[in-house]
Design a protein around this nucleic acid. Structure first.
Lengths: 229, 229
DNA sequence: GACGAATTAGACAAGAGTGTCTAAATTTAT
DNA sequence: ATAAATTTAGACACTCTTGTCTAATTCGTC
């Protein structure tokens, strides 16, 4: 019935397709209901499989949960690194380019389904599985944050920015760019596109007011004086 | 046996004391285990009362949960407004004063027991009780953020800062000052005192680089030009 | 079309948690 | 000291969930 077009590749068929739909459904249910409240029957229904199939694939509830977190971390990481690759190394218009980067990062990695689910699971169950989330910390922020910091360092080295500590600058960049989305994130919502753009725009403007290169020499000296005082 | 020192006041005795210890214990258990995973027997044990007393005071699990959120919101609000009252309106040393304010805000309101619990409950159960958390949004951020923004507006009016939109500035201030604490918050941890100070120091420095008054007129004009472009 | 692997529905035991009830004990106020 | 209110321990019915098992069915492959 089905042509033998792409053996062993996408879109996954049969067995593998079920594994994925189970993990996807489980991610949604774990997020909505929390680990304790998540009902395996419900996961099975949402995945469109029988309960027994869930157990066949993943053993038990806890193993399923671990599989979900691992899957989400991996998929999010892929997205984040793909987006970091679009960081403006030699910007034509620094402000516009950084805003674009910030918006891409939010839309593709943080506000999408996987990002939202992963964030929620970490917030909700992080304390219950210290080893698992230590692994996430190492694989996730532990790899992505330095990668972003390195891009800012390069921008500074290229003379586009006046930053002292690229790691601090990277964290502050993310803090600024998401400053207006905090409440939405807290409540588990997804910000609208225009909210993301607005927050990114305001954040980048402030970031450049602080670190942009057109600042007077005097103010840089003042900064140094303050630091040494 | 007990002297009739302070009728009807603190420290609460008997009935009222039990109500408080139940809510306190419930807050801890709801946070650790999530709503579905929270066990009323465990809450009773941690509160040092019998299970029946929990039901006598609060009816059922859901009503108890609502009482917990309301209590935490109220207590946190009290702390935040008390801290906002210490905002430096006429700073001697703007940088030091703002750092002090940021540290106080974190230590007294965001990183303390109540703040941590409330944050976690909102993140965890926010979507399940829309009306309850709409109420929190209104009573919490809806009142505190404008109050902080007003203080920044006053600082700008007094010539200490060059900000255009006080609401944006307030959100960015909080974003910057907490930039280095995000991961800890995510995992439900409590940052160490020196981490709070470090993050606040770095955040305030950047904030003042962006909004401090000693910036050249030229850069302000450039900012205006960019905004109109 | 036929074979083996995977999936399904359903029943099932075991365990855990909620919320109620009762009778005894304790606290509090008078 | 006494009466009223509160608290307690324990038992209880009820529901829900997990994880296993079995027999029938469907699917993928040759």
């Amino acid at each position: 019935m089905k042509l033998h077009v792409s053996p062993d590749t996408f879109p996954p068929r049969g067995h593998e397709a079920k594994r994925i739909s189970i993990v996807d459904a489980a991610a949604g249910v774990f997020c909505r209901e929390g680990y304790a409240g998540a009902n395996i029957d419900l996961i099975a229904v949402e995945a469109g499989v029988s309960r027994q199939t869930v157990y066949n694939h993943h053993g038990d509830k806890e193993k399923l949960f671990v599989a979900v977190v691992r899957d989400l971390t991996e998929r999010c990481n892929t997205g984040i690194f793909a987006t970091i690759a679009t960081f403006p190394d030699q910007p034509k218009d620094l402000e516009a380019d950084l805003i674009g980067f910030a918006v891409r990062l939010n839309q593709n990695c943080i506000c999408n389904r996987d990002g939202k689910f992963l964030r929620k699971l970490i917030q909700t169950e992080g304390e219950r599985y210290p080893e698992l989330f230590a692994e996430w910390l190492e694989q996730g922020p532990g790899r992505t944050w330095p990668a972003i910091a390195a891009r800012f360092a390069r921008l500074a080295y290229g003379g586009y920015l006046a930053i002292e500590d690229p790691d601090v600058a990277a964290r502050q960049f993310l803090g600024l760019v998401n400053a207006e989305l905090q409440t939405t994130f807290m409540l588990g919502g997804t910000p609208r596109e225009d909210e993301v753009l607005q927050s990114a725009t305001n954040g980048v403007r402030t970031f450049l007011r602080a670190f942009g290169k057109r600042r007077s020499v005097a103010s840089v000296e003042k900064q140094a004086a303050l630091a040494s005082a």
